[in-house]
Simulated assay, not measured.
Amino acid sequence: MSESEFAASAIEKISVARARILDQLGQVIVGQSDVIEELLICLMSRGHCLLEGAPGLAKTLMISTLSKVLELSFSRIQFTPDLMPADITGTEIIEENKSTGSREFRFLQGPLFSHVILADEINRTPPKTQAALLEAMQERTVTVGRVRHELADPFFVLATQNPIEQEGTYPLPEAQQDRFMFKVFVKYPSFDDEFEIARRTTAKQTVKLEPVLTAEELIELQSLVRDVPASDHVIRYAITLVRQTRVGEPGIPDFVTEMLSWGAGPRSVQFLILGGKARALLHGRTHVTTEDIQALAKPVLRHRIVLNYGAESEGVSADDVIDRILQETPAKEDQLTSDARFQKIFAS
């Protein structure tokens, strides 16, 4: 197969999969097109996603519906203050072997051993239990005792949290947040969308969802995303955006030093480029552009940069800082490479 034939085949497969998924989701979810697109990008990139929004915005429904559409095994974990690590990873029990009479350990798998994990209200459980997800999200394994257990493939953690109610919650540590590829804000629906939601949910309705992708087909699509080329300029642009968030590094803007106490790490660059590849395919292209990187800068960076007290007291948000970095960073290669300030960033 030639390069052009491969490109056409990849675009067709992704486009067909996207259309079928959106068609099925549309039977249950009204609006939220931006959120759904970012979820699909995350899935195609083998990432994990954190959804934040007020109660009643269908965060949980969106995730559970997506799992049904993808014909994947699904576990919902309701995170509560009394949840223990073994409740999600699994535990070893002593069991008697009836044939020999001896006792031996047997591992009972927890709900993490599914393809799609809904970590509902993840910030309601203590850090000890939150940390049980770290190995699973990064290594896709769970270690119990001295034995490492492989998790399902594909494996996604899709978590929700409520930004309003803070009593009885445990903010996610930076190391935990860094495992999530995206942090997606779920906003209130428009008037027309809310009208449709009210009309549908207050009348008799029968919805029959049909699975459109198997695990094997999804893994194939994820492999296609990795094959999408990204030019050196796009990679350099992604690195430049991330490095400008790091306080104390040469060449960063003054406003970053004034507003941030901590910046984003190398995983941000990886997720920007991978997400850009998935977004390019979803939009019918086989190459990544700086527009793809710009579109994903907020969901990738907003939970990885830490505002200082001064910025918080003035009502500055992480998205405001990212917007300003995007405005001051030229997307064209000749402008980026000729500016003395960015040359310092490349050299540092």
Rank of each mutant, 00 (worst) to 15 (best):
L260Q: 01
L272V: 11
L274Y: 12
I322Y: 05
V228D: 02
D334Y: 12
I325T: 02
G315W: 03
V306N: 05
I293S: 05
I252Q: 02
I322E: 05
L281G: 00
P330N: 10
T245R: 01
Q327A: 12
A311H: 05
E249F: 08
A278V: 02
R279S: 09
E312H: 05
I322A: 04
T289K: 08
E312P: 03
R304Q: 11
Q244E: 12
D232E: 15
H233F: 09
T337E: 15
F271T: 01
V306P: 01
D232C: 06
T289Q: 09
V269Q: 10
H287S: 13
A264L: 12
R246Q: 15
V247A: 07
V316G: 06
Y237N: 11
I305H: 02
V247L: 06
S313P: 01
W262M: 11
T257H: 09
I273P: 01
P299K: 06
V321H: 02
T257K: 14
V321E: 03
E312G: 11
V316H: 05
L224F: 04
T257C: 07
D292N: 15
V316R: 08
H283R: 15
P250C: 06
A311G: 06
K298Q: 09
G276C: 13
W262D: 07
V228P: 00
R236D: 13
R341K: 14
P266M: 05
T329N: 10
G263I: 01
A340Q: 13
P253I: 09
Y309K: 05
L301K: 00
Q244V: 10
H233T: 09
R267G: 11
L281H: 02
T290F: 01
L301Y: 04
A278Q: 00
A297Y: 08
I252E: 03
R302Y: 07
P250H: 09
Q335V: 07
E312F: 05
I239H: 12
Q270F: 09
A264P: 09
V225Q: 00
R324W: 07
V225G: 00
G275Q: 03
T329G: 08
T240N: 10
S268Q: 05
D232W: 07
T337V: 15
V256H: 03
A295T: 09
A280E: 03
K332D: 13
T257G: 10
S317Y: 04
L274E: 13
P250G: 07
R243P: 04
A331K: 14
I273H: 02
L282Q: 03
E328F: 11
G263Y: 01
D254W: 06
T337W: 07
E291L: 02
F342I: 11
K277D: 07
R279L: 15
G248K: 08
H303S: 08
Y237P: 11
